[in-house]
């Protein structure tokens, strides 16, 4: 099947479908957590599933532009939904940490200030807030060219998210490093583009 045919077929799939399908994994994780499907320690299991799913969505969002440029696949219509879903999963991940894991404001405050991986995770979350708030047509119109500049915050936010994952495990484990490598690769594709444009 050629890329053109995929693009044509996708024209029939509206973006709002993602808002229906996207939250389903969260419900599935919650169901697993309540029924023993997330293992012996379901709070940690739920926290990790939600966080990792957010990272996967961020990777999907970052992949859209390179896929169009390198493979001609046009998924740009879904990017906003993917970004907002990523924010939704980060929010749930944070909520599990606050309300199920720590449950104590003193501990939460100490963790944010003292534990670098949590500081970095919170920073990533903070960077995503303006992005989520301006993910509507009115903001795009109102902000004009600065909307694009503002939304470059995606890059540090995603990178910090991956670093947060690498730092929270003991030792150098493969899985978080793979996430980090994929994200660095997707960001590097953007770096390469800038000088070429300048030359032209």
């Amino acid at each position: 099947m050629s890329v053109d045919r995929v693009n044509t077929a996708l024209r029939r799939v509206p973006a709002w479908v993602l808002y229906i399908v996207g939250p389903l994994p969260a419900l599935w994780f919650l169901w697993l957590g309540l029924t023993g499907g997330l293992g012996i320690e379901p709070i940690r299991g739920l926290e990790h599933e939600l966080g990792q799913f957010a990272l996967k969505l961020m990777i999907a969002g970052l992949a859209i532009t390179p896929l169009r440029r390198l493979a001609g696949l046009n998924l740009i219509r879904y990017r906003r939904a993917i970004g907002l879903l990523a924010f939704f999963y980060v929010l749930l991940h944070l909520a599990v940490w606050l309300f199920l894991d720590l449950q104590n404001w003193g501990l939460i405050r100490a963790d944010i200030l003292k534990r670098p991986y949590i500081t970095i995770g919170m920073l990533a979350f903070a960077l995503m807030i303006p992005l989520a708030l301006t993910s509507n047509n009115r903001s795009v119109r109102k902000l004009g060219p600065s909307w694009r500049r503002l939304h470059r915050l995606t890059y540090p936010a995603v990178l910090l998210g991956a670093i947060h994952f690498v730092m929270l495990v003991k030792g150098w484990q493969a899985e978080p490093l793979i996430y980090l490598a994929v994200i660095l690769g997707l960001l590097a594709l953007r770096l390469r583009r800038a000088p070429r444009r300048a030359a032209a």
Binding site: N104, L107, R115
Partner: peptide
């Protein structure tokens, strides 16, 4: 630096 040791689950 990774885990608060004040409490445990």
């Amino acid at each position: 630096p990774r885990w608060s040791q004040a409490t445990e689950r």
